[in-house]
Design a protein around this nucleic acid. Structure first.
Lengths: 204, 204
DNA sequence: GGGGAAATTGTGGTTTTCCGCAATACATCC
DNA sequence: GGATGTATTGCGGAAAACCACAATTTCCCC
């Protein structure tokens, strides 16, 4: 029943209690949610790949590396998957701290099966959304990185609403040169106008 | 020591225990934080005004109306002030639910004075920021509301990057008319170009 | 030395944007 | 009826943006 790999939309279960892992796998499967399971934080970390998509269902207390420690390690590796803590030993400060650290939810065991499955489904949807947005932003960043310094200077001036002749004066170059850079910026950024460019960079 | 009114940056203490209110007032005062205190949720609600600025330091358990109930009431009245719950009777589900409902923090009594004062200071800073942003957005919304229907249609097309002659064709009007509406939109929105307009509406 | 990229510039022409000035038509309000 | 606001349109002229075609210079790499 264990699935492995960069499978989109997978609930990754990390718990040292095998009975819990099995029960959760079964629950998720009954809800049409793909899942994979790991017996320890170290095991998950060893297999972690940045392309993994989905969410984490994390126990708090585990031998050696704890849930929050794994969370911190993953975050420092750039992992943005939503994390749901599932624990039988929570207290208020720990719950509050976990949520303020960015956990998606903090649920005490035993818990309502439907509630948990619902929250996992929501976490998966959030991951899909975050991933899509990150993908777009990476594409924009890549195009921005392809600009030469001069092109970038002209782009900034264009985005500040300046006329070509003003930009030319500011940069001490010919207006024709401004036009050339401007056209190159639009081409590289894949837009047709300054408005489109402004909107693209606003993350719209 | 109680201060009252739409004073920017005030910590509003709501607790039915007078000793707590006094202690908190004293603590905040020693940290240069203005505060005001109310003995009940109802008392605060009766005095609430939308112009109030600052944050709330809320007890959870109070006679009649509870902290979370006050929270819900304030939110439904559009109040965006950050809320810090201060409680001696918290449990994990309550803490988690409160934070997921948008509370700024959830702190158990007794607590560290410095930590609480720090969090209140942070909450006040957040409120100032949120308030400033809301103010700007209200100004933009007001200007948007001043546009006639035709002006709005032309604005949407301009923001879509269309040429005046294309807009004219789409709306079945003369190009000169498009120019007139376009100029009116820029004037009402206080911008000089389509780029500025795009940026203004992106919330930049 | 040759090739490629980046920066720069000019010429001439086209398209698009901008706007003063003027006018008409319609609806609403006092 | 008069005033006001909105929508519309035309004319003529100016400014700004856009670009094909062409060219030169500099720097870096093989």
């Amino acid at each position: 029943m264990t699935e492995y790999g960069p499978t989109p939309g997978t609930a990754h279960i990390v718990d040292d209690d095998e009975a819990i892992r099995d029960a959760l796998s079964w629950l998720f499967k009954s809800r049409g949610i793909a899942s994979s399971a790991w017996p320890s934080a170290e095991a998950f970390l060893a297999d972690y790949r940045p392309q993994m998509r989905g969410c984490l269902v994390l126990d708090i207390r585990m031998e050696d590396m704890s849930g929050p420690e794994l969370f911190d390690r993953l975050r420092s590796q750039g992992c943005r998957m939503p994390v749901i803590y599932l624990t039988g030993h929570g207290d208020v400060p720990l719950a509050v701290q976990s949520l303020k650290n960015g956990a998606f939810d903090f649920i005490e065991k035993p818990c309502n099966d439907n509630l948990l499955a619902d929250r996992v489904a929501e976490a998966l949807a959030l991951d899909a959304e975050v991933n899509q947005r990150a993908s777009q932003q990476a594409s924009v960043a890549e195009r921005l990185a392809s600009l030469t310094q001069r092109e970038r200077e002209v782009m900034d001036a264009v985005l500040a609403g300046k006329l070509n002749k003003v930009i030319a004066g500011d940069l001490d170059i010919a207006m024709r040169t401004v036009e050339v850079h401007r056209a190159r910026v639009f081409e590289k950024m894949g837009v047709k106008s300054a408005v489109e460019l402004a909107k693209l960079l606003a993350g719209n």
